[in-house]
């Protein structure tokens, strides 16, 4: 299963981390892949650290354990860098994407010991400017596509448009805003 892509998400309860992981599974499924998207449940409350996982593969996925040596890590909440060892097991040939207004060099200094690529994106700025509120999961989802190159960017956008039309059938104003967030986020990943 060497072509298996494994992603670990770190965030806080209420930030839409599980939703983002499930949406990633959705779009990967739509491009013909075998997928898994699952959260690691703990005490459920707003603000508590949460972890979610994705496996994406061309073959059937049978492993039902959590992911310990991910190819990519996504940190949706920067404050977790202090309390959670987000680079644990992360492959050196992989990469980590952090939601921050600081550049990759500053974040890399906080991730002492990680030899792989450090990427950043200012998800707060993008979300607040385009949606008028802080929903970090959509910029991070676009950032994961940029980081992992798991699929063509246009294919990703086309599929997300379909997913969002389905998800926000009763709130069509959410579709255009989120699509703008995704498009802009693809161009704002730093450190590539």
């Amino acid at each position: 299963m060497s072509d298996m892509l494994e992603i670990r998400w770190h965030g806080r309860g209420g930030q839409g981390v599980k939703t983002a992981a499930l949406l990633l599974a959705d779009v990967a499924f739509n491009t013909g892949k075998y997928v898994q998207g699952f959260p690691e449940y703990g005490p459920e409350r707003m603000g508590a650290p949460v972890t979610a996982y994705n496996r994406i593969c061309d073959e059937v996925i049978r492993d039902h354990s959590n992911i310990y040596e991910p190819d990519f890590v996504v940190v949706v909440d920067e404050t977790l860098l202090k309390s959670v060892n987000v680079i644990k097991g992360l492959k050196p040939e992989g990469a980590i994407l952090v939601n921050t207004d600081q550049g990759p060099e500053k974040i890399a200094a906080k991730l002492k010991g990680y030899a792989g690529k450090v990427l950043t994106i200012d998800a707060r700025k993008i979300s607040e400017e385009l949606l008028g509120a802080y929903f970090p999961n959509m910029p991070m989802l676009a950032g994961v596509i940029k980081m992992s190159r798991v699929m063509d960017e246009q294919v990703f956008l086309d599929n997300m448009n379909i997913s969002l039309k389905h998800k926000f059938a009763s709130k069509p104003q959410m579709i255009t805003g989120n699509m703008k967030v995704l498009e802009r986020s693809l161009g704002e990943v730093q450190g590539l």
Partner: peptide, 12 residues
């Protein structure tokens, strides 16, 4: 079916 492992994981 196994709680969370199967019940809450999205799969093909």
């Amino acid at each position: 079916q196994d709680g969370f492992i199967t019940s809450h994981a999205v799969e093909n």
